[in-house]
Design a protein around this nucleic acid. Structure first.
Length: 551
RNA sequence: UGGGGGAUCGUCCAGCGGUAGGACUGCGGACUCUGACUCCGCCAACCCAGGUUCGAAUCCUGGUCCCCCAGCCA
């Protein structure tokens, strides 16, 4: 779908048909990517694709206090997994430190920057407030010579952290806070993951970003709405240096998803608090989490296309993502039979010790997917949810006296139940109709209910993990008085230790996806061990069960 | 209360002076050896008030509400 940024680009192309549309995805390597980043990735790389341009993968690594090489690797993995490629356009802001420094010197020479020796607190106070102008720093009128001297000595490591900063000389009374002599460079005696100890001064984002964009020949610099106020500074930097070109910054709204948070800081907090198992916990909105959960990358790309790009605050319902996942999985994911909460069913008139193998299609809507053998016998498991002693209206499953179809196998009729000492049903007894072999009878009688099942003698025990939203609140940030960790959904993960699956899943590799018929899509989790298969529920099948209606 | 943005079905997106349309959700139905898939149908919106115009979601004026900004973070 075409959006306002496409329109801007098309207009630019109209004016200059030879233009190589160039974008960039500029993450800071200080955490893992989430689906909000996916929106930006799809936008930037997508535009390059559509307009035959280029997209740079650029790490915005200007703050060694927060960044690390591990995150760099993880981010590259995530972007590739999503399906994008940057060819030889992998860059780092730190690649440009020397040029950035030279431009800073240029700014000083042109009296557009000065070394300020106010401490943080003093600077904060002199900046004024939203409604009051700031006041000039007492160091604002240092001579060019002195500024140059101090800046060189800042670089050479002569001063401790915080002693001085380099500031742009703009306007302390600007109504835009970003223009009140913003800091360009600060001293940080901190090794950098790429440049090690080569630098002890590091450039700030606004300065770095504008110049890095210019250096790469970015034509359209796309960022989120909170940088709208920074655009004048972005433009100022490019206007007051000999930058090779002047990219256009365009802002769009960030993605918010219901029942989760989309902030690296808050996600880090959840990981550190142990609220989740890690960055790749399948409940996390991170790309790593979604990958582990089993979401196909194509589903996420589809999602990003569906939600569009605007400047309006965007809060999307989970159902959109889930439906993208289902639609992506449905046509290609092989089917399997498995029960999550098993209850034993004995077919009284089926001989003990006799088993037969049914040939079952791997994908009922796609014959080319082939078939597999599934064993059947006198004792099977069905799901607890498929039996009710006292069924409500429109319950199509099994209950005393009713006949249902066991998928691809036989019709069975419930003739009774056994109870344990607590009075709980321990076993369901049925009889089967031999004429119904394969799932149909000669009299063509209609059977409304069809249940999935697993032969008890052949069942493969497994652990199944079911997921719900991480938070119980639609927007966990809406009420700042409630701690994030107090809004966690207590049932965000349900671990079922006694799932029973068809034995064909025995050696399924980690990452294998399967649809457990009538339940949902599942993915073999990395916690799987030789003797313990672990399945994540990717997403449940949509269901149209009658809902409880107010009577 | 300074500055910068934004308001169209419940949610998201289209519309660019000429019948407000799509997706998701919800509801109803058809089909069905998955209550899946597929198909059909229905509910449902232009923030408010003026103005311009034959005609306004769109243009103008004035309001209202929401988001962002006072890091040596990005």
């Amino acid at each position: 779908m075409s959006h306002f940024i496409d329109q801007i680009i098309e207009a630019a192309l109209q004016e200059n048909p030879g233009l190589t549309v160039t974008t960039r995805f500029p993450p800071e390597p200080n955490g893992h990517l989430h689906i909000g980043h996916a929106k930006s990735i799809c936008l930037n790389f997508g535009i390059a694709e559509v307009y035959g341009g280029k997209c740079f993968m650029r790490f915005d690594d200007t703050n060694p206090l927060k960044e690390s090489a591990e995150y760099v690797t993880a981010i590259m993995t995530d972007v590739r997994w999503l399906g994008f490629d940057w060819d030889d356009r992998l860059t780092h802001a730190s690649d440009y430190f020397e040029s950035l420094y030279a431009w800073a010197v240029e700014l000083i020479r042109n009296e557009k920057a000065y070394v300020c020796s106010l401490d943080g607190e003093e600077m904060r106070i002199s900046r004024g407030s939203l409604t009051e102008p700031g006041s000039n720093s007492p160091y604002r009128d240092r001579s060019t010579t002195e500024n140059l001297d101090l800046f060189v000595r800042m670089r050479s490591g002569e001063f401790p952290d915080g002693a001085h900063v380099l500031r742009a000389k703009i306007d302390m009374s600007s109504p835009n806070m970003n223009l009140r002599d913003p800091t360009l460079y600060r001293i940080r005696h901190q090794p950098h993951q790429r440049t090690d100890s080569e630098w002890c001064i590091y450039p700030m984002y606004d300065y770095t970003h504008a110049l890095s964009d210019a250096l790469e020949g970015i034509t359209h610099s796309l960022c989120t709405l909170e940088f709208e106020d920074h655009r004048p500074l972005y433009d100022w930097v490019l206007d007051h240096t000999t930058a090779p070109c002047h990219p256009q910054q365009i802002e769009f709204s960030r993605l918010e998803l219901d029942y989760t948070v989309m902030s690296k800081r808050l996600l880090t907090q959840l990981v550190n608090a142990g609220a989740v198992d890690g960055w790749d916990d399948p409940r996390m909105p991170t790309l790593a989490g979604m990958r582990r959960r089993g979401y196909p990358p194509a589903a996420i790309r589809d999602f990003c296309n569906r939600i569009g790009v605007t400047k309006k605050n965007q809060r999307i319902e989970m159902s959109v993502l889930e439906q993208c996942v289902r639609e992506s999985l449905e046509p290609t994911t092989p089917r399997a039979l498995g029960v999550l909460r098993p209850i034993k069913l004995i077919i009284d008139n089926y001989p003990a010790g006799v088993f037969e193998a049914f040939d079952i299609p791997n994908h009922p809507n796609d014959p080319s997917a082939g078939s597999r053998k599934v064993m059947f016998g006198r004792e099977i498991y069905i799901d607890e949810a498929d039996f009710l002693e006292d069924p409500p209206r429109r319950f199509f499953r099994l209950s005393p006296g009713r006949e249902v179809r066991l998928r691809y196998a036989y019709y069975v009729t419930c003739v009774g139940v056994d109870r344990d000492s607590n009075g709980e049903i321990s076993t369901i007894h049925c009889t089967y109709d031999p004429d119904s072999r394969g799932g149909g009878t000669s009299d063509k009688r209609k059977i409304k209910g069809t249940l999935h099942w697993v032969s008890a003698a052949h069942a493969l025990p497994a652990q199944a993990r079911l997921y719900e939203p991480l938070f119980y609140s639609l927007n966990p940030l809406e009420d700042p008085n409630i701690e994030l960790t107090d809004q966690l959904n207590a049932t965000s993960r349900t671990v079922l230790h006694n799932a029973q699956l068809e034995s064909n899943l025995q050696h399924a590799a980690v990452g294998t996806r399967v649809q457990l018929e009538r339940i949902g899509y599942f993915c073999v989790d990395s916690d799987t061990q030789q003797d313990q298969l672990v399945l994540n529920q990717i997403v449940a099948l949509r269901d149209s069960l009658p809902r409880d209606k107010p009577s």
